[in-house]
Amino acid sequence: MASHNWIDLTQDHDTGIETLRAHFEGHAYDPHWHDSYLVGVTEHGVQQFNCRRIRHQSTPGTVFLLEPGDIHDGDAPSEGGFTYRMLYLDPLWLERELSAVFDNAPANAQLSFANTLACDPRLARATSLAFEALHSGELRIVRQSALDGLLEGLTAHLQWRTRYRQDPRLPLVAQRARDYLHEHFYQDIGLDELARACNIDRFRLSRAFKAAYGLAPHAYLVQLRLAKARRLLASGEQPASVAIALGFADQSHLGRWFVRAYGLTPARYRAKCSNLPDA
């Protein structure tokens, strides 16, 4: 591989999903196929490949969708090459998750992509969010929420998705979910666990919660933890111990969320509020 080409590959330990971000200039790879569903987005440049006897050119923001067994190659037709991000979805995982997210998904539900390229900004954003959540090892509920958003985008036009109707239980479901999050905010809660506690599928749970409180369940949980973090930091607790106590992966993980919410690091906030030096 030429020195200007690079690949960054990780695998999510819960789902087994591989996430890949790569850059190629010139020839990228010979014809091959995967036993996974491939969902990806071109970030930069022109990604050219042959698939289903058609030559495709994917440009920034375009989503490319390949089914297991789709033979494809890849090269960069223009100077500067191309950069893309990709998720590899196992068919068995996909079938299982569709039935968990949507309780009216048909048995043995499998996706079939009518088009290899999709100019769909919402799906492109959902793909990128799912990639970022898995690739960076986010909280379990954040990863699940991002993947559910991807599944929602991938199935948006399927016939069985149109069967959903307004459920009179939803306001009560949202309140029950909120109470559950307050009681278990320090735990590594998953959307599947939250849905089981509320006796509803994950899709309607997320919709009901956002309608009631203006945030998705995963975002609400993060805000709960950050509010608790502020109190602990102001009382003099060290950022590292606060991160562990509240279920963040480590201090830097807490720091990323804290800066996004409040515009300063946990250590800086602690110093301003407690007047205590760092240990």
Rank of each mutant, 00 (worst) to 15 (best):
A100I: 12
D70M: 08
F203D: 14
A211E: 10
G247L: 02
D12Q: 07
A249I: 10
L89T: 05
D30F: 13
S241L: 05
A245P: 02
A219D: 13
L134E: 04
L194T: 04
R165H: 13
C119V: 14
F203P: 03
A279C: 04
A216W: 00
S235L: 06
P121F: 12
C119I: 14
S252C: 02
I244F: 09
T59C: 07
Q47I: 02
N104I: 09
E97M: 11
G263L: 06
P277W: 01
L232Q: 11
H253F: 09
I244W: 03
Y269D: 10
A105V: 11
Q57T: 14
I141K: 02
R96A: 15
N275W: 15
G81R: 11
W257L: 12
M86E: 13
R268E: 15
L221V: 03
A118M: 08
A2Y: 02
D103P: 00
L158Y: 11
A271Q: 15
V39W: 05
F102A: 07
A105K: 08
T83N: 02
T15W: 01
D35M: 06
R178Q: 14
C51Y: 06
L232P: 00
R21I: 03
D103S: 14
G149A: 08
H184L: 09
F64W: 15
D8E: 11
N104L: 13
I244V: 13
K228D: 12
F209K: 01
Q57H: 13
A245R: 10
H34T: 09
T265Q: 02
R125I: 10
L9M: 05
N108K: 04
A245T: 10
P239R: 02
E43P: 00
S78Y: 01
A240L: 04
R85I: 13
H184K: 14
I54T: 15
F258N: 10
L151Q: 07
G81F: 08
E67R: 12
L246H: 05
Q238W: 09
L254M: 12
A234R: 07
Q223F: 03
L66W: 13
T83Q: 12
T116F: 06
R165V: 14
A208P: 10
G236T: 07
A130T: 11
P121K: 02
D12H: 01
H4P: 00
G45F: 10
F209P: 01
